[in-house]
Write a protein that binds this DNA or RNA. Structure first.
Length: 199
DNA sequence: CAAGAGATCATCT
DNA sequence: GATGATCTCTTGA
């Protein structure tokens, strides 16, 4: 394996769709107590600007969405459906509110800890969904607003490039309310990977 | 295996 | 007062 390289502002301060595709094959790493949890990002979604009706900022700047207006590389965590957290990384220029949602991760390091956090042992079910990723990695609202790379959470490149033809594009999940935006193919995942959230 | 419903609460109207 | 960028369990074919 190549020496891992931590991704910083320059990587995230680009078009959101580019970042969403680029994150596939990169590794999410979280220092959880004394343990290091890691896994390969295999599924993402792009949420871009106030004109994207599926993006939280489509209703403008509010207390919750304030984080999305911060600089690229800022972590945006919010509570969905009253029970689960979702992990996003802010993209583009400051004040252009956009982010990439990390929807699924293939567990690699600290699997025993993830099993405890999730209270299950099925590997393919540990982090195959945005709520599951946060539960497995112990990510909560406390992380909201943190800028990566930080000592507790970062994303690194281990030299595993994903070929363009291995990237599947699809409509985003759970945004039927977003009118025409609901059909944008802004969900990306690695073809025939077993750890994505749904086929 | 697919479909449906319930859990649960911060945020916004 | 309504509504989710979800997950799990139950039901029934």
């Amino acid at each position: 394996m190549k020496r891992p390289k931590k991704l910083a502002t320059a990587f995230f301060q680009r078009p959101t769709l580019t970042v969403a595709r680029g994150l596939l094959g990169k590794y999410l790493v979280v220092e959880h107590g004394r343990e290091t949890l890691s896994g390969k990002i295999v599924e993402t979604e792009a949420y871009r600007g106030e004109d994207d009706l599926a993006c939280h900022t489509s209703k403008g700047r509010t207390k919750r969405t304030e984080t999305l207006y911060k600089k690229a590389g800022t972590i945006y965590v919010y509570l969905v459906y009253g029970m689960y957290y979702c992990l996003n990384i802010v993209t583009e220029k400051k004040d252009f509110p956009s982010a990439v949602l990390i929807r699924a991760v293939e567990p690699r390091g600290g699997i025993a800890r993830m099993e405890k956090n999730r209270k299950i042992t099925a590997l393919h079910n540990l982090a195959s969904g945005p709520g599951k990723v946060c539960e497995a990695f112990g990510i909560t609202k406390r992380m909201n607003g943190v800028v990566i790379p930080s000592p507790h959470i970062w994303v690194e490149d281990r030299g595993e490039a994903v070929k363009e033809e291995d990237i599947v594009k699809a409509p985003r999940v759970g945004v039927a309310y977003a009118g025409a935006c609901a059909r944008y193919p802004w969900r990306f995942y690695i073809k025939s990977n077993e750890f994505i959230s749904k086929k």
